[in-house]
């Protein structure tokens, strides 16, 4: 190769500051001055502009295609002609990766921080729809299915409270929206219920439902979450009956709600009416609406 074409590899011809100034690890080094044929420089500039320009166009295409349909319509890119994919494959991949990372970070032995009573903060009723009429509470029963005994068990709140030890904890509930609240929760450990009514041996998941959940217009809209049994067995995962020393009100999921501080608030299902243990991952209300399936925090 002749030296003109290999211009950038030429040895530096001169240091612009004396050799002595270059000593010391942290001291700025003088730049190497390179002599190069103008044609080489032009060629390399063209090449780099092309490479970086192509990269920019590729980034714009991939990034743009991943924006939500509604945003693309607002920008005037996609006027209902569906030129952009509805399936946001890259974002779905990122969500799966993030779920895997959250699952890898989870440790069954790591306890979440606990607080003192003076640190308790107000907890708002964040029912997504209307709050159910408290009338359901007196007729409430919990159904357990997918048990190793093969039978379906139906329990009332008195039976649950009589049989299990009540634990107290003051922990933080973190909502997917970004707010959080510290509350004093009391209830039985989910782990104790799993020991009292063991699930089928292959079970890895609990499908927890609330049939009393309502939508914004007050119509029935059953709520359901998926909880992996590893999380259900965590010592701070409670089936809570009391909030701040008082029995749960309808706003907070009377008479029994899930309190799982290692998950986002949306997994902390209120007014549980049914728990089904399954081998395969059950559906989840918010995962169906584009949120994470795992929600580990």
């Amino acid at each position: 190769m002749n030296p003109e074409q290999n211009g950038m590899q030429l040895k530096p011809i001169r240091k612009s500051v004396p050799e002595k100034a270059s000593h010391g690890l942290f001291r700025e080094r003088a730049p190497e001055i390179i002599e190069v044929a103008p044609s080489t420089l032009r060629r390399r500039t063209r090449r780099d502009l092309f490479v970086f320009g192509a990269g920019a166009i590729a980034a714009l295409a991939v990034g743009g295609s991943q924006l939500p349909q509604r945003v693309l319509q607002r920008l005037g890119v996609d006027q209902g002609r569906s030129i952009t994919p509805k399936d946001k494959w890259l974002l779905n991949k990122a969500q799966r990766l993030d779920d895997d990372v959250a699952e890898a970070l989870y440790s069954p032995n790591r306890l979440v921080p606990t607080y003192t009573k003076s640190q308790i903060t107000p907890l708002k009723n964040n029912y997504n729809g209307a709050t159910p009429n408290p009338g359901y509470i007196s007729k409430w029963r919990l159904t357990l299915d997918g048990l190793s005994s093969g039978v379906t068990v139906s329990l009332d709140i008195a039976a649950l409270l009589a049989r299990h030890q009540i634990h107290d904890q003051i922990t933080r509930l973190v909502c997917v929206e970004g707010w959080s609240a510290i509350s004093w929760w009391s209830g039985l450990r989910f782990d104790d219920l799993l020991h009292a009514y063991p699930p089928v041996s292959q079970a890895k998941w609990a499908h927890i439902e609330s049939s009393v959940n309502l939508d914004a217009n007050g119509n029935p809209d059953p709520y359901f979450v998926s909880i992996d049994l590893l999380t259900a067995r965590h010592p701070q995962t409670l089936l809570a009956t009391h909030l701040n020393g008082q029995p749960l009100t309808a706003e907070h999921g009377a008479p029994l709600r899930l309190l799982v501080p290692v998950k986002l608030g949306l997994k902390n299902i209120k007014a549980i009416t049914r728990i089904t243990y399954t081998k395969d991952e059950p559906p989840d209300y918010w995962a169906k609406r584009g949120y994470s399936r795992y929600d580990g925090i």
Binding site: Q66, L67, P68, R70, V71, K88, L90, L91, N92, K93, A94, Q95, L97, D98, V176, E177, W286, R289, G290, Y291, S292
Partner: peptide
Amino acid sequence: YMLAPAMRLHWC
């Protein structure tokens, strides 16, 4: 009201 897609984009 774009929380779910916004979180996916944010993680990505």
